[in-house]
Every structure is written in C-alpha cells, then in structure tokens.
C-alpha cells in the first residue's frame, strides 16, 4: 500500500472512532467553550470589552492548546487500550503512514475546534473578522493546525502506554508548542487587526509556523516507527 493510502485509511479510522464515540462533540468542544468563558471571568471586563478584544487572539490559541492536550490523550487512549497500535505495527503498516494518518485526523478535529473557538471569540469577546485579513487568517490556521497536529502526534505517541501519561504529556508538549502559540497569536492579531496591526504583518509569522510544521512533520515521519516500537 502506498503511504498516502495508509494515511487516508488511518485518518478515516480515527475520525470514524471519534464520530461514533462522540467524545469530541460531547466533551472536548464544551470544554473548549468553557475555557473561553473562564478567560472572561479571569480578566476584568467591567471597563468595557476592549481588554478581552485586545487579547482575544492569544486566548483563542491558548484554549486551542489546552484542548489539544485533551484531544491527543484521546487519540492515543483508543490506540493503547486494546494494543491497537501494536497490532498496526505487527501488520507491517508503514509507521510514517500511521504518523501522517493520525496527524491528519488530529488536524481535522483541531480545525473544527478552532472554528468553534474563533466563533466563540466573535460572540463572547466582540472580535471582528475583517474581509481584508481573511487570507492571512486562513493560512495561519492551516499552518498552525498542521504544526500542532504533527507535534501532538509525536509526543502523544511517545507518552502512549506509559504510566502517568496524563501528567507527562503537558510537560512535554507545552514547551515545544510555544513557537506555535507565539507565531499563531501574532499572525491572528495581524489578520484581525488587533492593536491596529495590518494583515501584511502576519506573513513572517506564517513563515515560522510553516517551518515548524515542515520540521516536525519530516521528523515525525522518520522517527515515529522507533517511538511507538515497544
């Protein structure tokens, strides 16, 4: 089987599992929405909504990172529960394909999540999406989502099957995704015009996000086999 076929099959399997279990819609999405509401509690909004509006891009990506942890745990919990990952390895499936497939499924889930979070920011924080920044916004979302999905799969695979992975994963994952948080937040600010930023200011940050995604995508494809080989 070609790498692409494996990728597609693994991604389809993951998404089917998620669609049937409804953990995403019943637990992760409400959790993400709750995080957005809690941010509003933490930041004083009595002086008007300007503060929330100013920090909205950062909060959206922070909420994405928190939810990423939950989604990655979930993505590998279904694999290690019945030794499914080992079964895939024994079946001789190319580990690079498994990596790309799981990353793709993760990216699709993250995209849904991010769309909801952006919508929540529009509703709750009075964020306005400008027509002039829509291209920058979309490219930022694609680049950042790919990067997060790749890194999430690498470190999720590493922590899968280990004792205490619930606590280990945030420790491993959060330092690595710091560049994504910084880059995606600046690029989103540029796209939304937060603090009078212009959309053009977002492109260098998108470059950083793409570089991040490319490096970890290549690294993960090469190393994933050794990581999950128990």
């Amino acid at each position: 089987m070609s790498l692409w076929t494996i990728t597609r099959l693994v991604a389809a399997k993951d998404l089917r599992v998620e669609a049937r279990s409804r953990v995403m819609t019943n637990q992760v999405l409400p959790f993400a929405g709750l995080v957005m509401v809690t941010f509003a509690f933490a930041l004083d909004t009595s002086a008007g909504d300007s503060l929330l509006n100013q920090v909205a891009p950062g909060l959206v990506w922070l909420a994405t990172l928190f939810s990423l942890l939950v989604v990655v745990q979930r993505s590998f919990a279904v694999e290690s529960a019945d030794g499914a990952l080992d079964a895939l390895r024994v079946a001789g499936v190319h580990p690079g394909g498994v990596f790309l497939g799981k990353s793709l499924a993760l990216a699709v889930q993250l995209a849904v999540l991010e769309a909801l979070l952006l919508f929540a920011a529009v509703v709750l924080y009075q964020t306005e999406v400008r027509a002039s920044g829509i291209v920058v916004l979309l490219v930022t979302y694609v680049a950042a989502t790919c990067g997060l999905a790749f890194v999430g799969t690498i470190y999720g695979g590493l922590a899968a099957g280990a004792r205490g992975r619930e606590t280990l994963l945030p420790l491993l994952l959060l330092p690595v995704v710091a560049p994504v948080l910084i880059g995606a937040t600046r690029a989103t600010e540029a796209a939304l015009g937060t603090n009078d930023a212009t959309p053009g200011e977002g492109w260098p940050w998108i470059g950083l996000l793409l570089l991040f995604a490319a490096l970890f995508g290549a690294g993960g494809t090469l190393a994933f086999g050794s990581l999950i080989d128990e």
Binding site: P179, W205, L208
Partner: peptide
C-alpha cells in the same frame, strides 16, 4: 526502549530550541 525513546526526544529538543529562541526573539 528507554535509550531509543529518550534519544529521539533529545534530537527533537535540538530541533525545538532554535525555534523557541527565534520566535521569542521576534516576539
């Protein structure tokens, strides 16, 4: 297992450090 797992992680850390450094520098 320990050796392979941690060696790969260490190499990813080598990848991570310059990215963090430059993103913070830009930030």
């Amino acid at each position: 297992q320990r050796a392979r797992r941690s060696a790969i992680l260490a190499l990813f850390a080598v990848l991570e450090v310059p990215l963090v450094h430059f993103s913070v520098k830009w930030w």
